[in-house]
Design a binder for these strands. Sequence first.
DNA 1: CGTGTAAGGAATTCTGACACG
DNA 2: CGTGTAAGGAATTCTGACACG
Lengths: 91, 91
Amino acid sequence: MINNYSYLYKKVITIGIVTEMTGLSARQVRYYEEKNLVFPKRTESGRRKYSFFDIKLLMDIAEKIKRGIQIDDIRMKLMNRENWEENMNVL
Amino acid sequence: MINNYSYLYKKVITIGIVTEMTGLSARQVRYYEEKNLVFPKRTESGRRKYSFFDIKLLMDIAEKIKRGIQIDDIRMKLMNRENWEENMNVL
DNA sequence: CGTGTAAGGAATTCTGACACG
DNA sequence: CGTGTAAGGAATTCTGACACG
């Protein structure tokens, strides 16, 4: 079970690829982190690393914002998701 | 079926992360590409992008080389694998 | 509030080549 | 044959700040 998700949660994607895949700007992606909506890991030198799950999450977030939902409210919703803790912690 | 492997084959990992995960040098990773053992995609600006499958493959290759098997022979073996074509083509 | 941008610096990656053997 | 390395350049990413509103 856990193994099936190893690729989904593993944080290995740099921010450039993320903006490519999500269509968001780096500014947006970093801001959602600042607001504790996503939790990238860092390389030794400080570069952000995201998971496939983060990619999906970011697109989800951006879509909600576009619909007028505020970031604080989005975070509330997210924190109730069952995979939330997992997302924050998995390497 | 195909969907289950989307994360496995998707090329999104830059070479720095790859060397981190595999323990190989960038030189080695690029050389195996030169010899047609792995097929990274490229970003618009030419940066290499690898998949999780590539990571596994690279470690497999390195291990075989360490055991004295020549690259040409390794390629022969690889080309017989059922997922070979898939690996070469998937975005 | 959420995002754009210019700024300066640091880390990453690229290619082609020389070296060893 | 497989890998290390120095070289020079180009692309990426980082942070903190100003701007709009």
